[in-house]
Design a protein around this nucleic acid. Structure first.
Lengths: 197, 197
DNA sequence: ATGTCACTAGACCGTATGGTCTAATCAATA
DNA sequence: TATTGATTAGACCATACGGTCTAGTGACAT
């Protein structure tokens, strides 16, 4: 029996890395193939274009990674505030994230305005993240941890976009320390909505 | 007398627009020339490469525009808080900004990690902005408007990067309304540091 | 009138890139 | 052993792009 063919998998792995680091347009298909030691024929056997290779990479690598990383389920034994705190801590320890920013964001910025298919695909995940963060905040309000003045949806948008903002300055400016200060401000703002009565 | 030759100026104008909308790599030099109705020879008479054309555009168009737009001088008759509020209001009314984000940020994200010359040039302007916002916040602390707990430098970084973050989501997500909510959060956080004693 | 110099004009070139095509492998099955 | 179907291999092609080159053109100075 032929041993499991890992060409497609390796191709997706390396495509993820290259696109993450250099972006879509700046990454030549040839450089991916060279690094992966995979001939062109193989690639065009599995995918019919660079676009569909990257589309598959997004679905089969990027999204699973994000799903494994973020957990939007409110934990009964932990305050929602603490929950956010922990997630930010995890992010700050994720070297790639601090170094290259959020891969979803990078692709959105580069491709959303240009390609409808990418646009739709990437937006879906953004909305999923948004819904997740919103859920957590809603739960916080319902638990009475936060005041009803807190608008979960709009705060979630602020939280995500501002965090993408700092991360997008990497690697030029942003460092782990920079990110931690950012976290502090977000959490301070969140504290503003804590109920004290 | 020959009437003033505006070829170079027009070239820079259109280069600004095209690069702003599509980014550096995605903008072909040919498309700029076509739109401007300028032959290649003219362009290569004034500039020796695409890079130096864009470098000149940054210095002679982008930066002057930013200088004309932002004013970091603390006004004696207006509170620093009000000052920020007004600047955010101006930004929200700037359609291009809300639509395409901050051109400086876009170029930084695309080019900083790649090209040292761009990196240095763009970073300089970022640091200038940062210094400007920091100055305003420092003045606020010195006036006693804000508490000494406010760290001007780090808050300025947060303010800029988070604002770039929302703007970077345009045109897909961000709209004027979105931006206003962002402003609200930033100002709320700033209010946190207001001295009340 | 003529020469000069800044600028215009666009054909042309080399390279990089995405994508195609055909021939070889090779494991599984008949 | 022969056949088949999936996969590998890489030469090859078309195009787009940045950049070069040479020949004009026209205003101004002499």
């Amino acid at each position: 029996m032929k041993e499991p063919n890992n060409t497609r998998a390796r191709l997706l792995d390396i495509t993820f890395e290259e696109i993450y680091k250099s972006g879509y347009n700046a990454t030549a298909i040839g450089s991916i193939l060279k690094r992966a030691n995979i001939p062109k024929g193989s690639m065009y056997h599995f995918f019919d274009s660079k676009r569909s290779l990257v589309l598959a990479m997004i679905k089969e690598r990027l999204y699973p990674k994000m799903d494994a990383f973020f957990d939007y389920t409110p934990k009964p034994d932990i305050s929602i505030y603490k929950n956010f705190e922990q997630t930010f801590l995890m992010m700050s320890r994720h070297e790639l994230m601090v170094m290259y920013g959020c891969p979803l964001h990078r692709l959105m910025v580069e491709l959303s305005a240009v390609d409808v298919t990418f646009d739709a695909l990437l937006l879906t995940k953004y909305e999923e993240m948004l819904a997740g963060v919103t859920t957590l905040l809603k739960e916080g309000v319902e638990r009475g941890e936060f005041s009803r003045d807190l608008d979960p949806d709009s705060f979630a948008r602020f939280l995500i976009s501002s965090t993408w903002g700092v991360l997008s300055l990497s690697p030029t400016i942003s460092s782990s320390g920079e990110f931690n200060k950012h976290t502090k401000y977000i959490l301070t703002l969140l504290t503003t909505y804590k109920r004290t009565d």
